[in-house]
Design a protein around this nucleic acid. Structure first.
Lengths: 350, 350
DNA sequence: GCTAAAAATGTAAATGATTACATAGCGCTC
DNA sequence: GAGCGCTATGTAATCATTTACATTTTTAGC
């Protein structure tokens, strides 16, 4: 008689739910239930199953589970540029909540390339992702329109926005009040005696920058300074801060204060001022935005607006999880920002 | 007769390979082949299949594919701290290569927590990830030991290290020569006349820091300055640079130069010097490490060591892809770093 | 035009888990 | 002790794709 105990599988292949069932002396259904809905299984069986799992070293095959359940337990965090430290704390907040709920975060770095954004959106339709937290408005709007095509107006498309938003598409949003934050910064500068206040925005057309710009204009208006409006456009980077800083400052009629839409641009402006021998805050006040780690360590330390980044991330993920459970979601959650006064701002010089 | 044209599925559910097969008038196997191995299908059929795919709007279900192929096309990039901008460019390099080959990058932020690292390693055994690029040595070594348990000594475990490494575990590694880079920095400082040169390292025991420390010691030794060795320990952050900077500098016998193991720590040291009214580079020279974006924008601009971060990422991913294909892999790839001299270093003052 | 080899295609099993449905067992009531 | 309801469990279909193997068709050589 031949050896009937042929090794049915070549190597000690990774154990499946069948192996557990065999070891526990029950069916695969019971094992599955013991894991997914322990309360539906008798104490004795549950105990046996758990021992069997430990004994054979079982770990569920997630691809199989995902296939059957038609979900991936993966959330895409879509952002414009991973090298911007602004996002890391938001991601961190998202991960806290996501991991708790058994979800993973896939970071989608668009690098300002629409094709990348599209690729990440495609993950939704191929069941590789269950939802998206959108941290940029720099993507083709068609991606959302086609995805969001619900007749009832109330999108149940699993997408929430954080920080950034679209002016013409209504999606659940977690963000600060950019208009108000901007007003606060300009008010503060005016209170220091500044009259020629410039602002250095992010990319043209970016809705949050437009909000901030509106706050800038409104506040100047309130103080009768509307004819002093002076706007330069950057892209949030050190480099654009430096370049636009030079352009704004190398000028007899130069501003006495610059309100920047990111801390990195503010640091670029600081460098431009140094190069032109303009002292900060003596001859120039600079305000940043975001309160990234650097703002405490540059010279001079940066006056800036702080966003509750971790909380934004948490809330965004929380909202998305609600959406995924089919629950209704708050359309707009506004978290509070605040102005942090450090050393880069001062009273206007004679 | 009843309406036989009952909608077999409730909603216009997402099309599967069966729908394509039906539309193209062939079997699912042929459709699958037309996609995976087009050369095995006749021109006419391939054409019909492609049209059918476009017609029904088919996209393959990845979970099913992953299950069947027992792979995930996902690579984990495990790093100690996502908020460190040093990593973003490496990730970017990894993504370029990975996407080209049809792989995704899952960023695993360990946040210095071993449990997180373990969770990401578990993705391997559950088929949720195909390989790991390890960018930190701050993980429990047992994770690798148990995973790497191959008798032949030549690990075919799908893991490569980049930048960081273990002193006692031999894994494929892509990195610069930290010892040499450190020698170069110290040599340069000595050539400027410095004798009391301190070094501010990363976390104690970190192998790359030990390498750099060795270079520091060796070079001082060569110049007969071995009795001037002065070492402080940080953790790569702004904050630790500032604190250790104060400790090193608030002292009559203070060093005239500090070699920091990260740019952020160097910027922290700059702040400490400002606070103590020590001019840089007049009374103190500072050298950083990594050449992150900030180093051109701080004051003074930072002399630092540049690592080819994008290339490191590319090579690391390339090596991992080789491993995954079962090919042999270069155990150690050393890329070249170089010293970038800016404004934070100068001749020692009388 | 026949045959063998090669190419193209189809059939059906397999991947590993979940779950609708069926069934068994038990305790309880009347 | 028949009937009911409840819990616990098993059976087998299902998810969407890939692929070994079988079968058919085409090509080429003579």
């Amino acid at each position: 008689m031949l050896n009937t105990q042929v090794t049915s599988k070549q190597s000690p292949s990774v154990p499946t739910i069948k192996d557990v069932a065999k070891a526990a002396g029950c069916s695969t259904a019971t094992v599955s239930r013991a894991l997914a809905t322990p309360e539906k299984v008798s104490d004795a069986t549950r105990e046996r199953v758990n021992q069997a799992i430990a004994q054979v070293g079982y770990a569920p095959n997630i691809a199989a589970r995902n296939l059957r359940r038609a979900e991936s337990k993966t959330i895409v965090a879509l952002l414009p540029d991973i090298s911007n430290p602004f996002f890391s704390e938001i991601i961190s907040g998202m991960e806290d909540v996501a991991h708790q709920a058994g979800y993973q975060i896939l970071i989608g770095d668009c690098e300002h390339d629409p094709a990348r954004a599209e690729a990440y959106f495609r993950l939704l339709s191929t069941n590789q992702a269950d939802g998206i937290v959108l941290l940029t408005s720099e993507i083709p709007k068609t991606l959302i329109k086609q995805a969001d095509g619900q007749a009832d107006g109330q999108a149940d498309f699993p997408l929430v926005m954080a920080c950034e938003f679209f002016s013409d598409i209504d999606l659940p949003l977690i963000a600060i009040d950019n208009h108000q934050a901007s007003c606060q910064a300009i008010d503060y500068l005016v209170s220091l005696g500044h009259q020629r206040i410039a602002t250095l925005t992010g990319p043209a057309g970016n809705p949050i920058c437009l909000e901030r710009l509106r706050g800038y204009r409104d506040t100047l208006s309130v103080h009768g300074l509307i004819d002093q409006v002076c706007v330069a456009e950057g892209d949030f980077s050190f480099r654009s801060g430096f370049q636009q800083g030079l352009a704004l400052l190398d000028n007899a009629q130069r501003p006495t204060a610059i309100f920047c839409h990111s801390d990195e641009m503010a640091v670029g402006v600081l460098k431009a001022a140094r190069q032109l021998d303009i002292t900060v805050p003596g001859q120039l006040s600079v305000v940043g935005f975001d309160n990234i780690g650097l703002s405490e360590y540059c010279d001079p330390e940066l006056t800036t607006i702080s966003q509750p980044r971790n909380e934004i991330g948490q809330q965004a993920m929380q909202s998305l999880l609600h959406l995924l459970r089919g629950e209704r979601v708050i359309r707009r959650q506004t978290l509070s920002s605040h102005l942090i006064v450090r050393k880069s701002t001062g009273r206007v010089s004679g």
